[in-house]
Simulated scan of single mutants.
Amino acid sequence: MSPVPVPARRAVRRFTAPALLAAAALAVLTACGTPSDIAAGSAPSSGAADAGQLRVNLSPNQNRVRATKIDAIANAVPAAIREKGEFVVGVNPDGTPPLEFLATDDRTLIGSEPDIAQLVADVLGLKLRLENTSWENLFLSVRSGKYHLGFSNITVTEDRKDLYDFATYRVDQLAWEVRKDSKVTKISGPADIAGLNVSVGSGTNQEKILLSWDEENKKAGRKPVNISYFESSDYQLALRSGRTDAHFGPNPTVAYHVAVAGETRIAGTYSGGGASIDGRIAAMTVKGSGLVDPVAAALNAVIKDGKYAEVLQRWGLSNEAVPEALVNPPGLPREKT
């Protein structure tokens, strides 16, 4: 077996969950409908987060959107998995609402990623078993076969496609976060960040984009960007205190923090693939396992019947929907060596 490369961090850096769970949630949900566990116009109760007109269920009792088994798709699952009847899915939930995080019991895995994984398991006629793991171990465990699938906001890249197969289910969208009173009104290109103090997560896709924008500014004779690196929600304090002018991070978690804190706003969004390609988030399985095609078929089935849209709506991610699940589409370009 060839050596396993250390996977670069995805387009997500982690927030501390407990503080977020105690606060208000996703303002973007106010434009959505009301799934069964989100009550319209009522005050938040224990285990729920107020989102203006809606409440988001943060309790362990999720009442998830469910799908039904489709025999033609389920029969395509590798026999060893079908016979065991269990679908083992790894997630990395160290505080990334609304994607994947722990419920108020600090044990139950909730969020859009577990919900979509549940839909896939339902269509395949398998019992879902979610595994809480580190980001690095997620890749190793999928590669070794310990986990059948990684469902953890994983971006498709050409490097990763050497070892893994992917079935896409969401666009990879990044966002620029600034204080509400910031003089920065819009960020859509390199010139808009010239001379600013910007925070970003180290080793992420957004860091690569930020560095390329900084190089473009320097070549154009503009002021360089002062870049600060944060591993967690510490960036929020730097932004609030004025030590940084903007933060560049994944759109779902930025949108969540904007709603929770009530002190910041989104100044612009950008594709996680940069200017060269549309970034895609995908379910990941070991290459050649025979699982990627039925997983993609399951995703397309719930896209078609509306269950997928219900899940995204539930977590305020409707603007990241895809019309079709694709198998191994073009990914982010290979790392230069």
Rank of each mutant, 00 (worst) to 15 (best):
V156A: 02
T157M: 09
E158Q: 13
D159A: 05
D159E: 09
R160E: 07
K161F: 03
D162F: 06
D165V: 05
F166I: 03
F166C: 06
Y169F: 13
Y169D: 12
R170P: 06
D172L: 10
L174A: 10
W176V: 04
W176L: 03
E177P: 09
E177R: 13
R179W: 03
S182P: 12
T185R: 14
K186V: 10
K186M: 07
G189T: 00
G189L: 00
G189S: 07
G189V: 00
A191H: 15
G195V: 10
V198M: 04
V198K: 10
S202W: 14
S202M: 12
S202K: 15
T204D: 01
N205E: 14
Q206I: 01
E207P: 01
E207M: 02
K208I: 01
K208A: 02
K208L: 01
I209F: 00
I209W: 01
L210W: 00
L210T: 00
W213P: 00
D214Q: 03
E215P: 08
E215Y: 06
E216G: 14
E216D: 15
E216V: 10
K218E: 11
K219E: 07
K219V: 04
K219R: 15
A220L: 08
G221K: 11
K223R: 14
K223D: 15
N226A: 07
S228V: 11
Y229G: 10
Y229C: 10
F230K: 14
S232C: 04
S232I: 05
D234W: 08
Y235N: 15
L237I: 04
L239M: 14
L239H: 13
R240S: 11
S241F: 05
R243F: 08
R243T: 11
R243Y: 12
T244G: 10
D245K: 06
D245S: 08
D245Y: 09
A246E: 12
F248A: 01
F248T: 01
F248K: 02
P250H: 11
N251F: 12
V254I: 14
A255L: 11
A255Y: 11
Y256I: 02
H257W: 10
H257C: 05
H257E: 09
H257Q: 11
V258M: 06
A259D: 07
V260A: 13
E263S: 08
I266V: 07
T269D: 04
T269A: 04
Y270G: 01
S271E: 09
